[in-house]
Design a protein around this nucleic acid. Sequence first.
DNA 1: GGGCCTTTGAAGTGC
DNA 2: GCACTTCAAAGGCCC
Length: 501
Amino acid sequence: MPQLNGGGGDDLGANDEMISFKDEGEQEEKISENLSAERDLADVKSSLVNESETNQNSSSDSEAERRPPPRSETFRDKTRESLEEAAKRQDGGLFKSPPYPGYPFIMIPDLTSPYLPNGSLSPTARTYLQMKWPLLDVNHGSLQSRQALKDARSPSPAHIVGPFCLEFPGQSDLSLHQFQLSNKVPVVQHPHHVHPLTPLITYSNEHFTPGNPPPHLQGDVDPKTGIPRPPQHPDISPYYPLSPGSVGQLPHPLGWLVPQQGQPVYPITTGGFRHPYPTALTVNASMQSFLSSRFPHHMVPPHHSLHQTGIPHPAIVTPNVKQESSHSDIGLNSSKHQDSKKEDEKKKQPHIKKPLNAFMLYMKEMRAKVVAECTLKESAAINQILGRRWHALTREEQAKYYELARKERQLHMQLYPGWSARDNYAGNQQGKKKKRKRDKQPGEGNEHREYFPNPCLSLPPITDLSAPKKCRARFGLDQQNNWCGPCRCKYPKEVSCLVRA
DNA sequence: GGGCCTTTGAAGTGC
DNA sequence: GCACTTCAAAGGCCC
C-alpha cells in the first residue's frame, strides 16, 4: 500500500491483524508516540487534498470533524479549525459525535462471544465498548436488553454482536440509537418500531445524523425517489429501506445473521437457489455452535449457509444468470457434456465474493457522500477522490476500517472455510473471460494525483503531458480539453494531441 | 452485453 | 521474499 508515512501505512495494511483494540489506552500511547510522524503523515496526506476541496467540504461537518487536528497556520488548517468550530456549534455541545462520524459502528474485540455465560457482556467487551463509546450504557444494554430481546416480537438484526444501546442526552425521541452491520440500513431507529434494546450496528454514517430525526420520523419516504414507501409488513423491520421489489439490497455480509427482521436482505438472483451449495458454504461447527448457543433455533442459519428465508450471504453470488448461458452453451456444444461431473459441479458453485478490504468498506460508505458533494457519477472519478480521501484519513480512522475488514475476513473464513481467493480467479472459472491485463506503464497510476488537487469540481487542466492516464473516464469525451496529452493521443480524433505529443 | 476505468488492500502466483 | 496479478465495489462509457 502506497502509504506516505514511510512504512506506517504498510503496517495498517498488511499487518492490520496487529491492530489491537483491546487496550485503547495502549493504542493511544502508541498514537502519541507516533504523533510527530503522524503529523508529518497528515501533512503529506493533506497535501494531496487541495484547498478548494477543503473549502468545498466546509459544507460537510462530518468531513471536517474527521480531519486531523490542526497543527500549523496554513490556510487549510485554519479552514479546518473553523470547520471544526462550526461542527461543535452545530451539535450544541449536547451531542458529541463519534470521533469518526463515518464509522458509527461498534467493533467487538471478540466477535464470537462478547457475552459471558450468564448473558452479560464480558468484561473485555464491556470495557472495550465503554472505551469506544463513552456514552454507551453497556450495563444497561446487557442483561436487560437480552431479556427484552426475548420479549421482542420480531427479532432484530445483528444479534451477533450483542445488544448495545446508545443514549444521547437531549434527544429524547432519539434516545436509543441502534446500530446495524449494514451500510444501507438506517442506524437511527425509533424505539417504538423496533425494540429499544435491539442491537443494531452499522458502519454507515449516511443515516447517522444525530442532529436530524431519523428518516422514518420524517415520513417514510424513499430517499432516492422521494416517493413515500408503502407500509411494510409488520414482521419486517420498517427500517430496512426495502420494498418488496428491492429485495436483497443490503449487502453487509454479517446481515445474513438477520433471519427475520431483514428478510429481504441479500441479493437473490434470478433463479433463486436451484443449485445446492457446496460444502465450502456450510457454516462450520464452531460458527454453528456459536449461533445455536446464542440465538433461538429458528434464527440460526442452516448448515448450507442460507438462513431460513433462503437469503444467502451477500458474498455469495449465485451464478444462475451466467449458468444459463453456460447451460445453453452446454446444450449447443455437446463436447461440454463430456466434461467431468466435477467440472459441472464447479460451474454450479455459487460465486463467493472476496471479503471487502478496508478501502472497499470505506468506499462503500463514502461513495454516496462523494457523489452528493461532487455531483459525480462516474465511479472511476469518484474512486480517485475516495482514494485521496482515504489517504487523508488519519491512521486511527483508517484503523477502524482495517479492523472492520479484518472482522469481515474472519467471518468470511468462518462462513466459507474452504474458500480461497484463488477460486475467484478468472482462470478457475469457466465461461468467465479473463480480464485483460492492464498494461501499466512505469510511473502510471497516480500521476494525476498531483495534478488534480481538487477531487471534486473545477479540476484544473493537466499540466504534465508526460502522465499517460485515462482521462476519458474522468472527463468524458466532451471535455477533452482537460485530457492529458497521452490520453488525447489515444483518441486520434483530437488532433491537438499530435501537436502536443 | 460485457469490458474498461479508477481506487486500495488482500491474497494468489511465479520466480 | 519480492514483484506482479487478480479481484473485491461502483456506475458511466464505449465497442
